[in-house]
Simulated assay, not measured.
Amino acid sequence: MPFTFRKSTIEGLTLRIGYKGSDSSPDAVPLLMLNGIGFNAELMDDLSRAFPGRPVLCPEMPGSGKSPDPVLPYTMQRMARCMVSLMEREFPGRPFAALGFSWGGALAQQIAVSAPRKVERLALVATTSGLPLPIANPEVLRRILDPTEYIDPSLLAENFRALLHEGGASAGLMRRFKTPTPAGVGCQVAALASWSAAPMLPFLRMPVLLAGMAEDAIVPIAHQRALACLIPQAETFEVRTGGHLLPLAVPDRIAPRLAEFLDGKEALVNC
């Protein structure tokens, strides 16, 4: 079942939010899915099918997908408050699980640090604890951090499609991609560049899964290994082949383990 969409204003930010939940149990723990930088919710649709028994929300960040541009820049802390408010509005008084991919994994960490009693389980996929950990490909790092890359919409679209190819996007994923706005991407980059949750991660007490791809050239597996050092009780799961976008392009390679983890089942083996 694909996402259904509606727009909602939370803490002054208007977001387009993808919903799934018609086949979920009333007692199932809701799942908040957080996407990569500049990505629209449709790119997470295939991965979300791995969690049919629970309600799923996948918000698009300002300037991504069909969410309007932010009026002002925001911090990761503000966006984390926004996500917690969204989940409280949709599921009053209930804890939720969070699954963050890439930039969304950074936001998921901030949510877990800011509202630890609200997050029941935390899955971090191909993500980072914040700069200055490097990106494997220096040219990718230059394009991501150069503000001039976001001024021209046509250049922005060209760069994003190049990054999708480098990350291992499938043809189906490319067709579903909607180019974000320069303001939307710029705000996400600025929020990440000034952020790190690393000092607080050793204090996390909810179950955490760290998943990464050994061939990821955008967020190298070293980022997951660094997170494993910061979160002593975290479980790690490494996919030995595949690039950064494997979780979205070929979700069958990683979705079963994510589903097991979110259902409370312990580790088996890496794939």
Rank of each mutant, 00 (worst) to 15 (best):
E238G: 07
R94M: 03
E266M: 04
S129P: 10
S85P: 14
A169Q: 01
L163H: 06
L57D: 01
C58R: 02
P134T: 07
P202R: 08
M44G: 05
A28P: 00
E139A: 15
A50S: 13
A191M: 11
P62E: 14
F261S: 15
R6N: 14
P92T: 07
E260G: 04
T148M: 04
Q188C: 12
A267Y: 15
P132T: 14
L32V: 14
P147E: 10
G264V: 05
A41Q: 12
P182V: 00
I111R: 15
E120F: 08
I231A: 07
A157R: 03
A190K: 14
I231Y: 08
F160M: 08
L15S: 15
V185L: 04
P182R: 01
P182T: 00
P95H: 04
I254F: 00
L245V: 11
I218Y: 00
S170K: 00
P2N: 02
R94P: 00
A190C: 08
P199F: 13
S22V: 06
E60M: 04
A190T: 14
K265M: 06
V219E: 02
P55S: 10
S67D: 09
T14K: 08
V125H: 03
S194D: 10
S22M: 06
R142W: 09
V84I: 13
Q77P: 02
I151V: 13
F96H: 04
G36K: 01
A217E: 15
K20Y: 03
L246Y: 01
H223C: 02
S85N: 13
F177L: 03
Y150K: 02
A126H: 06
E215F: 07
P138K: 01
M33L: 14
E238C: 11
V250W: 05
N40H: 11
G63L: 01
P132I: 11
R81D: 15
L43P: 05
G18T: 02
P180S: 01
A41T: 14
F91G: 01
L13M: 11
S24D: 05
L13S: 10
A226Y: 06
P59Q: 05
E149Q: 14
F177Q: 02
K118H: 06
A214F: 12
D46A: 15
L72D: 14
M213S: 15
P95E: 12
G264P: 03
M1N: 08
